[in-house]
Design a protein around this nucleic acid. Structure first.
Length: 592
RNA sequence: GGUUCCGUAGCUCAGUUGGAUAGAGCAACUGCCUUCUAAGCAGUAGGUCUUUGGUUCGAAUCCAAACGGAAUCACCA
């Protein structure tokens, strides 16, 4: 049964029968905490047309609902707000339906494929906090879409070539003294990142020297020998020069080994890897196609452009005069490739909001080229993670490293857990497993509870909380429920059949209401690509259960049916909490 | 300068398509462990929703302007 649907239909009927008003959409909202009731219907909009007082309208509709809907127990009218209370028997039958549904939380199959591209790192430096937000977001959105009934392809387009990669390579060649991850004990991505920073250091010195000779800032930046050498290296790479390619392959392998380790710790995975070294030449035929279709035009120097001034944008280069690609050229080609590979109806790009303009242009081009998948393309643009000191900058060493942060979180989890001393009988493996679960729960929840679109602040001085609106709080609620269920098992209480009850505690009713909302929230989160909605839901559910936990005793209850109901109720709540935070990529411990 | 986004408690954030007295957490203060895990629960205090106009029964939400902040405006990716 869909309570909302029943109420909406009943309200429509009331409006029609009592006031001869036919309304096709009735909007219900959750009742505010301070008032009695679960759903609220606002009658203000009808006051004027019907020339009745809000109170009279509310009472008339409320009375009608009570008599005819079959599910309304009481109602109250405050000003123009009709607050509706649903009967306990209705909540109980809702609870039964949820219990019986093995796939609760999995929406019907949509028979559509959607691609979520995320992570997409550069192979010249290790991952940092910003990447964590990207990866957690992408992974979570993929889970949420799968729960919405889509077939999901998680893709990673690795930027493994280009001038920035050559910078690391060059610095390594010049200053590396043959270091390897093995010889230094450094993770491969960190070792390569060290040389990216090294490059920048020497490059800056050169710039200063040139400026001292009287060159302008811009000239100095362009003429610094190191940069010129890096550009030459890129050409060598593009020409397939053996030595350069070998160095590139060696260093890339180091980075990939490092990334894989980090991905594993993060708990993210991919179904399809694309590498720019394989895709960077794509898109040139698309440029030809665009020229014949008249979407693009060629300037005298031979460069190819698109004019988007009628769309409020500028002219944008899509192919250089020497015939080489730019970023957007390969993105056009890659979009075609992805579609050819998976024939998906939606393609989500999880990329930071600094690239808003790029994707705006890209999608407009795809549209103008008449691609069938154009309307399914979506840039999931998320805000930057800022530090109290401002923006993170790799080259200036002001980044929060992903590996470091995750390790610190594990340490914090260890300290917190040991202070509480609840797991002294754990083996060290079990304990380590728990620390990781809690650490990643805290970190993921912290990054995902915020609306993806908004930029957010991370203060490294203040460790991420384990209390309040946090991942561990939700995990703790699950652990509590697990504990109860263990005890029930010891006592040999069967949860096979549900007992018949005639009433509910207020806290139980609130939890059942929240349980009934789970499918809606999954749909909302899927439509908005917003894991934050699921995070908020999981928190609300855990909070409501904890209230029940404190107000209602299970094993001290003498009436056996009540004990069995409360156990079944706890079990379903635990399962739903688990399912909800699994959508965030967060796991649950059975004890903590 | 053009374009886009943002401005809510001391701090970090919620706030559905306009609805009631603007909500959580942290930090501060009060209670609650002889009872299923106190990483919890209940409560107190904390607000000119940046400002000024407008739209209407009603605005944190929509419109306009101002102020403050961010991103972007590369033949980089």
């Amino acid at each position: 049964m869909n309570i909302e649907k029943v109420l909406q239909d009943s309200i429509k009927a009331a409006l029609l029968q009592k006031f001869e008003v036919s309304e096709n959409e009735i909007i219900l909202q959750p009742t505010k905490k301070d008032f009695e009731g679960t759903y609220t219907f606002v009658v203000f909009p009808y006051v004027k047309t019907l020339r009745k007082s809000p109170v009279e309208l509310g009472n008339t509709i409320g009375e009608f609902l009570k008599e005819n809907s079959g599910i309304v127990s009481t109602y109250n009218v405050v000003q123009g707000f009709l607050n509706i209370s649903v009967s306990d028997s209705t909540w109980l039958s809702i609870f039964k339906e949820i219990s019986a549904d093995k796939n609760f939380g999995q929406l019907p199959d949509k028979n559509e494929t959607v691609m979520v591209e995320y992570s997409s790192p550069n192979t010249n430096k290790p991952l940092h906090l910003g990447h964590l937000r990207n990866n957690f977001l992408g992974f979570s959105v993929a889970q949420i879409l799968a729960a919405n009934g889509y077939k999901v392809v998680k893709a990673n387009l690795v930027n493994d070539r280009g001038i920035h990669i050559c910078k690391s390579m060059l610095a390594y060649q010049k200053f590396g003294k043959g270091e390897t991850p093995e010889s230094t004990g450094m993770k491969g991505d960190h070792l390569v990142g060290k040389y990216y920073v090294e490059f920048d250091k020497h490059y800056k010195t050169e710039i200063e020297a040139l400026k001292a000779q009287g060159l302008s800032e811009d000239e100095a930046k362009k003429q610094a020998p190191l940069l010129i050498e890096a550009q030459e290296m890129l050409l060598k790479w593009e020409n397939g020069e053996t030595e350069t390619v070998a160095l590139w392959e060696k260093m890339n392998e180091w980075v990939f080994a490092g990334f894989n380790e980090t991905y594993k710790k993060m708990g993210v995975s991919f179904d399809k890897m694309y590498r720019e070294s394989n895709t960077y030449l794509l898109g040139k035929e698309t440029v030809e196609e665009g020229l014949t279709k008249g979407v693009f035009f060629k300037k005298e120097d031979g460069s190819v452009w698109i004019d988007l001034t009628d769309e409020g944008l500028d002219q944008k280069l899509v192919l250089r005069k020497d015939g080489t690609s730019v970023y957007i050229t390969q993105d056009m080609g890659t979009a075609d490739l992805k579609f050819k590979d998976f024939n998906m109806s939606k393609s989500i790009y999880v990329v930071g909001n600094e690239q808003d303009y790029h994707f705006d242009v890209l999608f407009k081009i795809i549209k103008k080229l008449g691609r069938s998948y154009a309307d399914g393309c979506f840039h999931l643009s998320y805000g930057m993670v800022d530090l109290p000191t401002g923006k993170m900058k790799s080259r200036e060493g002001t980044v929060v490293d992903a590996d470091d942060l995750m390790s610190e979180m594990v340490e914090t989890a260890r300290e917190r857990t040991n202070e509480l001393g609840k797991i002294e009988d754990f083996t060290s493996e079990e304990a380590e497993e728990l620390y990781r679960t809690l650490a990643m729960g805290a970190l993921k929840y912290f990054l995902l509870k915020v609306d993806p679109k908004k930029r957010m602040l991370f203060n490294p001085q203040e460790s991420i909380d384990f209390q309040g609106n946090t991942g561990p709080f939700i995990q703790y609620t699950f652990a509590r429920i697990s504990s109860i269920l263990r005890k029930a098992e010891q006592l040999g209480i069967s949860l096979e059949t549900l007992p018949e009850l005639n009433g509910l505690h207020e806290s139980e009713q609130e939890v059942i209401y929240l349980l009934s909302q789970f499918p809606n929230r999954i749909a909302d989160a899927g439509r908005e690509y917003a894991p934050s909605l699921i995070a908020q839901y999981a928190y609300d559910l855990a909070k409501a259960y904890n209230r029940f936990y404190n107000e209602v005793s299970i094993f001290n209850e003498t009436e056996e049916d009540l004990v069995r109901f409360r156990l079944a109720f706890s079990k379903i709540t635990g399962e739903t909490i688990q399912k909800a935070i699994a959508l965030l990529g967060v796991g649950v411990p059975s004890r903590m």
